[in-house]
Design a protein around this nucleic acid. Sequence first.
DNA 1: AGCACCACGTGTTACGTATAACGTCCCTGG
DNA 2: CCAGGGACGTTATACGTAACACGTGGTGCT
Lengths: 337, 337
Amino acid sequence: MARGSTRPTSRDVAQAAGVSQAAVSLVLGDKWRGRVSATTAERVREAAHELGYRPNLAARNLRLGHTRTVLLVVPALTTEFFGGVYTGAARVAAQHGFGVVLYPSPEGIGPARDPFASAQAALDGVIASSMAADALTAIRGDQLPLVMLDSDPEGSLGAATVNLDITDGVRQVADHLLSLGHRSFLHLAADIASWTFDVRARELATRLSDVPGTLLRTARAPISIEDAVTAAEAALSAPGPRPTALVCDDDKLAAGAYKAARRLGLRIPDDLSVTGLDDLALAQALDPELTTVRLDAELFGERGMRALLAVLEGRTPAEGDIPVDLVVRGSTAPPGR
Amino acid sequence: MARGSTRPTSRDVAQAAGVSQAAVSLVLGDKWRGRVSATTAERVREAAHELGYRPNLAARNLRLGHTRTVLLVVPALTTEFFGGVYTGAARVAAQHGFGVVLYPSPEGIGPARDPFASAQAALDGVIASSMAADALTAIRGDQLPLVMLDSDPEGSLGAATVNLDITDGVRQVADHLLSLGHRSFLHLAADIASWTFDVRARELATRLSDVPGTLLRTARAPISIEDAVTAAEAALSAPGPRPTALVCDDDKLAAGAYKAARRLGLRIPDDLSVTGLDDLALAQALDPELTTVRLDAELFGERGMRALLAVLEGRTPAEGDIPVDLVVRGSTAPPGR
DNA sequence: AGCACCACGTGTTACGTATAACGTCCCTGG
DNA sequence: CCAGGGACGTTATACGTAACACGTGGTGCT
């Protein structure tokens, strides 16, 4: 634990350069114009480089009272989606001199489901996906500035929310399938208690209920390919007329549906149209390629970070959901006859 | 930035409980046995809870001289693999009272390619994947305890290394395909300068060179499905005898190869056997399911963290590569005739 | 000459925490 | 009746940094 030679401090640099510690702080903090001569400044920088000086972040954070670091709480990283969210958030954070620390919600990590215990960094604010539901109670307790991602605007008291326009995405899916002539639907729903999935179910139901003669059934599965296979296989081989359109809450579920269809000897899209949601790389790897709703993960992260920045500066975050687009590929077609 | 009411400090708690700040520190640090009465301790805890007190991490870190936080540097999260690595690392870290901060290497993130600028947390050590090559130069400069993942044991001076036994994985792939009767190979290689990919190429070449009459060609593509499609399509439609076996550096490349094969009208595995490496969820979503090498990402992360813990405590990390397993599925078969 | 002002720094302080060192009581045994 | 020690706290200090407040000569201007 104790290293032989301790790290050099700004005082060490000061001594090496023959100046006071204050001067070092000025120079390295780039606040020396008009306070320190250019030659002295250069001497300080040299000494710092020579000693391999790195400022002690803990001390700086303590002194400054803030860390310019925010925490991004996301579900377990089983998909590239939240990688994109991070990328977007980190990009705009960097432009404002902020850092982003990523906290994937625990799947059996340790006893304490407390993001702040694991990401022990001192934080200025938090961006949290509502899908990381288990971590939220811990976050609520903290009075840190908070932005919620994909969360019920009504339900998240006080906290700003940034949402994808999932409602519109589901509407586009429903309209697409309806206009192809489908009337018998199966909804393969994610078995997760989260607002963003509730929205999918609700919007699909209301959209279909506008059209007389439509039928909607629902199956549930955790978001994993294997679980989706069994759930879809069971639902598709249930008694009664077979659905002609399968709307999945997620591309991964759709991938499971593909396998289930293969097992049952159903051809996609001839016997069964399938749609997903996310537009993961997976979507284009499937055969036929998956009709799905593209979510712009990076933009999502950007908007989240901008909203948090606004909260941090006392402004009110921009309103408006993030638009999403239906990408029609080969997995949807008119129902076979 | 400046909140109306500043966060309560341990001194505020002390005042509320009618004790000194030291007593608060003792109680909350669980070091009060024999120093503070149980009733007083309870009173302190109540006051702390009442005020919503959270210790200031920056101050604690400064005082303690360490943070019990380590940084995990990985490539951009385009796959679930490094999510698994994080999970494993975070689990053993939590068992030892450590936190893990995840730093996905920048893909166009900000100007500074410096993980320490982005993850501004004060750190005790670093675990870095050699695939995040662009971040490494920045890391080298720091004298933090370092563990390298999937890195050349010779090349990473001083730093401990933890590696998957990729060499053995490639050997298993080669043996599998050879025993099926294949003699004409195409290697679809990741277009990334990294030791772990060099190893794949080297081992495949030497393994095949042991068997007279084998042919090995190579195509390169960045690790993305689209790039893999074009590279594989070009290579498979090149003049000369068509390879019967396609060894991919990665499951994603294999997914691209599937699409290329479809476009060329080649059936898998009848006309072309394909293998991957990683065993992502993707592997089982493909049709036919992909024969691939399973890498245990969580174990990888665990071993990485254990090694770093060892370095931190002055012990020498355990030796030995992490075993990997070939998973034979439907994408490989004897060459058609 | 007198005065303001600038260039070039230095001394000192506070951030919030953990802990070493130091007091009081009060009880108990001899 | 006093020494000794536990029980229960308190006081003081240091961690490394940023920044405020304060010199101290010299120089230009009137």
